[in-house]
Design a protein around this nucleic acid. Sequence first.
DNA 1: ATCATAGGCAAGTGGCGACTTGCCTGTCAA
DNA 2: TTGACAGGCAAGTCGCCACTTGCCTATGAT
Lengths: 96, 96
Amino acid sequence: MADVFEALAAHARRAILDVLRERNGQTLFEICTRLTMRHSITLTRQAISQHLDVLEAAGLVTTRREGRYKFHDLDTTPLKVIVNRWLNPNPTAGEE
Amino acid sequence: MADVFEALAAHARRAILDVLRERNGQTLFEICTRLTMRHSITLTRQAISQHLDVLEAAGLVTTRREGRYKFHDLDTTPLKVIVNRWLNPNPTAGEE
DNA sequence: ATCATAGGCAAGTGGCGACTTGCCTGTCAA
DNA sequence: TTGACAGGCAAGTCGCCACTTGCCTATGAT
């Protein structure tokens, strides 16, 4: 599982998480469309695809393939490391 | 207030937050020492100083000056945007 | 079978951020 | 008042990452 923080570093990737939160299980093209429409992010399909790879490597997005479609689902579980690391009053501090 | 996510992107800055969580109100030199001792991070003083600037710009660190010392305090408040953005069941989604 | 659609692979580019080096300012102790 | 200590400023280097371009594969409709 790659670095969650690095995954969150890019503005476009955060927008993707927002888009997936609006509606789960979208395809690459749907995500591209929504990014353009709702978030004024105009990137090439490949750019978005690469971002999705990063998000998936970080465990923030899971994918399932059906025919020629690939659906993307949001998983916020990795985000809880942030809470556990600094916001938690009784931490298991210092791991990385 | 600068980008909290960008501030969290660097490994060294996350370690600084850990160090400040161990003990609040440390000076630059104390932070440098702890990073070396406890986290095996050997960077120049200036590098750490620049990281602290980024953290302060993001609101994650506050500073107070006393004489020739400058003390650094941790402020985890900005981290809650993460919870509010994706972990919260009822979000105020999409702002940035 | 053929063509449009959904997605993937790979190489290249440009800019930004992390880090260093060198020097300067300010504070306190002797 | 001079020297040690805490910190700041500015410029330069370097590597990585975001993004593009070009082409390829696979699935499904007609």
